[in-house]
């Protein structure tokens, strides 16, 4: 196991609170930074997130160059509100319309690569109740100030928000501790050092993201970490303590579905990497039981294993983002 990684590649957001320093580093590197927010019915939280990021990291400090919302087809006012506060809003199904369209967070993140112009992309979830600009500058810190870091991931305390009782201080990250950490311990002990592998907040360089396959649904975070680890190694990754993230609590039942999707993806991935051999295809249905009117009834959820290929393999993307090399030898951008 890479023993020093936890010490050398773990940061606290306060180390990057001098935003002017980050802006200087950004200018020196001549990079463009995009903040991408995947949404589905987030009208209650999206405005706060856009307003704070825009005020602090665009108007007051030119750290972000654009805020992009990729929406899965919200039935509420998410898109209207996001547009009102100045974000660039896209309906996911309108992006690359020639391709078959899917619904899911991974789909939105993948398509964000096509519509954004950043050399660095910051992905943040939009259900964060205590959103603060540290969520973005904290993740950008290692990418801008440490030459070897290409991907940074958030970790935090995860108090659960309870509508009736306020905030309960513990209890978050159950799927991490009961599913992902045991699997990582079995197959990728190095990755157990990542405190919150399922956190929905991460940032990285475009040339890294464009070479990754993006699962459509829940499992994007797990597969992303495994793929980066296998292709570039642990040393290109950093993790940043963002202190606290208050989020909606989920029922054990829905966490069960999430765990199913993660295990399904995990097993497929390690099979792809020839770490195990699956003799048969995995079942794509999660079977749960409910007690309705004194009878146990099956509740079956189907999980597609759809996955977007690395976007660099898509001709329209290559057309949009030229491969003409920059001075430093890295691929340049047409847009």
């Amino acid at each position: 196991m890479a023993e020093n990684w936890l010490d050398t590649n773990t940061f606290h957001h306060s180390e990057f609170s001098s935003i002017d320093r980050l802006v200087k580093a950004k200018k020196k590197k001549e990079v463009v930074i995009s903040l991408c927010l995947p949404t589905l019915n987030e009208e209650k939280t999206i405005a706060k997130e856009i307003v704070i990021m825009k005020s602090e990291l665009m108007d007051r400090h030119p750290l972000l160059d654009e805020i992009i919302v990729i929406d899965s087809g919200s039935s509420d006012k998410t898109r209207e509100v996001a547009t009102h506060y100045g974000a660039q809003v896209h309906l996911s199904s309108d992006i690359l319309p020639d391709l078959e369209s899917f619904k899911g967070k991974g789909e939105n993140l993948w398509k964000a690569l096509y519509v954004s112009k950043g050399d660095i992309i910051v992905y943040l979830d939009t259900d964060i109740k205590n959103i603060h600009h540290r969520f973005a500058y904290g993740l950008l810190g290692p990418l801008l100030l440490d030459e070897k870091i290409r991907f940074s991931k958030a970790f935090y305390d995860r108090p659960l928000s309870d509508e009736t009782k306020g905030i309960r201080p513990t209890g978050g990250g159950r799927v991490t501790e009961l599913v992902i950490r045991p699997l990582f311990s079995l197959f990728f002990p190095d990755l157990t050092q990542i405190i919150q592998p399922l956190s929905g907040e991460y940032a990285g360089y475009r040339d890294l993201f464009e070479a990754l396959a993006f699962p459509i649904g829940y499992s994007i975070e797990t597969s992303m970490i495994i793929d980066i680890y296998k292709n570039w190694g642990l040393e290109v990754m950093a993790q940043v303590d963002l202190d606290r993230r208050v989020h909606r609590n989920q029922t054990t039942r829905s966490l069960g579905k999430m765990a199913f999707a993660l295990m399904q993806r995990f097993l497929t991935r390690i099979s792809d990497y020839n770490m195990i051999q699956l003799k048969d295809e995995l079942n794509d249905r999660m079977i749960q039981f409910e007690n309705r009117a004194q009878e146990y009834q099956q509740d079956i959820s189907k999980f597609d294993m759809q996955e977007r290929p690395p976007i660099i393999t898509i001709p329209q993307y290559r057309e949009r983002f030229t491969t003409a090399p920059k001075k430093d030898g890295k691929s340049g951008r047409k847009t």
Binding site: K44, K77, H84, N130
Partner: peptide, 11 residues
């Protein structure tokens, strides 16, 4: 006192 108050911004 509460550890955190959740504010909502709308249009």
């Amino acid at each position: 006192y509460q550890e955190f108050f959740d504010f909502t911004v709308r249009k």
